[in-house]
């Protein structure tokens, strides 16, 4: 099977766009001192296999892309995808260990952005981003299902706490509550628990009917367009309902 063509022009554009003061300085001054090795749980969990040390991951991805000026093969890109998505969770622990404070996670995120542009983001993340773009949440839950789940949880928890309501799209509420789509789909009890706490605390709150999913898997995929869209949905909901603050479920 023929390998898909690499869109070198797009990579070059991204690389040029990304090369600000930070990347320029970071890539130049990394002393390869390996202070970062022991900060990384991938490295520690794989019996200190050097290929998991943070500076090496950058060297094999972003640094390589710049050195080759974006002219890389499909095979090389696939290898980078395996590193950028599979060997780093962008936890940022290494940036606390680096003498120069190099933020590896930011560079890995940049690599993900480049790879995503070549269609190399893992399928699970691509699908989630697609769902978020189309339905406003990462799991493609319809507004109807969302409202129904809330109603169901409202009935359940009302038995325990008289007077409890789960308001949706209540304009002028003080607080907007947003959550993770996983809660709606797999752990609906979470909604009831949150509602009970908010009610007990006397919070004047509401769910939005659109923009209730606070997650942003497109950010993890590296899809800037959907990332911005996902964040904007929540922002728009907050503006639309004129709330004063947003509570997220994490």
């Amino acid at each position: 099977m023929a390998e898909p063509a690499v869109n070198v022009k797009l990579i070059k554009e991204r690389l040029a766009f990304l090369k600000g003061g930070r990347f320029k300085a970071w890539l130049e001054i990394c002393a390869h001192c390996a202070y970062c090795s022991d900060s990384c749980f991938f490295y520690l969990a794989h019996d200190k296999d050097p290929k998991y040390m943070p500076a090496y991951k950058v060297k094999q991805t972003l640094d390589k892309l710049y050195k080759k000026k974006g002219e890389v093969t499909w095979e090389e890109l696939e290898k980078m995808a395996d590193i950028a998505y599979g060997d780093c969770t962008a936890c940022r622990r290494c940036s606390l260990y680096c003498p120069f404070g190099i933020d590896v996670a930011v560079m890995i995120a940049a690599v993900r952005g480049i790879l995503c542009g070549q269609g190399l983001a893992p399928k699970g993340l691509q699908d989630a981003a697609k769902h978020h773009w189309e339905t406003g949440n990462q799991m493609a839950i319809t507004e109807e299902d969302f409202v129904e789940t809330c109603k169901w949880m409202e009935e359940e928890s009302e038995e325990e706490m008289p007077g409890l309501k789960i308001p949706i799209e209540k304009k002028g509420a003080e607080t907007l509550y947003v959550l993770n789509a996983r809660e709606v789909k797999f752990y609906p009890q979470d909604i009831a628990e949150a509602a009970m706490i908010l009610y007990a605390a006397g919070e004047d709150w509401t769910f939005p009917d659109l923009g209730w999913d606070m997650t942003n898997l497109a950010m993890f995929a590296g899809n800037a367009q959907v990332m911005a869209h996902s964040a904007k949905l929540v922002y728009d909901a907050a503006k639309r309902l004129e709330v004063k603050k947003i509570i997220t479920s994490e």
Partner: peptide, 15 residues
């Protein structure tokens, strides 16, 4: 300084 659980950065939904 805590370690990441190992499921961050979208690792779980990657499949």
């Amino acid at each position: 300084y805590n370690h990441c659980c190992g499921g961050g950065g979208g690792y779980i939904p990657m499949g």
